[in-house]
Amino acid sequence: MYRLIIAAVLSLCLVLPADAGSSEAGAPQLPAAEVAAFANRVQQDLAARGARVAIVSRMGRDPRVMPKGVRYTHVSFWVFSQITDANGRKGTEYRAYNLYQIGANGTRSHLVQDSPADFFAGAYNFDAGVIIPDARLQAKLLKVIASPTYAKLHNPRYSVLANPNTTQFQNCTEHTLDVLMAAVYGTSDIAQIKANTAAHFTPQVIAVGGVKRALAGATSAALTTVDHGAQVETATFESIARFMKANDLAARVYRVTPDAVYKF
């Protein structure tokens, strides 16, 4: 009997992952050489388009098991940078500015820069969502990313389904949105950023029923929804893309696969 109880409890733990697919160096699911080739393809594509900063997303999970309307699990800014290695050699490539989920229970995050290959290391398949901001916005974003505001806007209390209209929790997508709003409105005031987000940004509604919601929160603190009202809404790559297109903030929004580029 007790074995049955344990099995039941374990089954809940196993089916409700608290990892949103935005962990650093996620478990490799694809061959390293192919990951490196795809990462290079994405950054070569961005360079060819003259993008100095872009919003890039990866697919860390099988999209068939993702909530409706959500395909990408991790988002970060990619910044065209001059790199100096340990040997003093200089080069230019993109650097990914990430907020990664960490901790034994996944309820904390930290800000990490890594390479395009590191960014795609935990990808489920080779499919990148890309937003190239308007050139004027790129200049504003670069100023924010290079300033203390970038770190100031980080809230290390992580939730997979963080509400982008509040400051209680944050995930990678919400931090990206906060930085974006800081650049658009020229402010580092988080209260002003949240007020503008609530007024102008439409988050992705996540269909989570009452029972699932209660079970999720009980299974892992990273799956909490206490920062939400009756409806669970969170920032996603897709919702940021819609927001930027609707307000003429994006020059291009598209998907990159190993074989083609698709309009998003």
Binding site: D85, G91, D118, Y150, A151, H154, N155, Q170
Partner: peptide
């Protein structure tokens, strides 16, 4: 024009700040 001339590189952590 932008040219990619770098290679795979290591991570650089950033400090965390208190929630607002």
């Amino acid at each position: 024009a932008l040219m990619i001339t770098g290679a795979a590189l290591a991570d650089v952590s950033r400090p965390v700040s208190a929630p607002k």
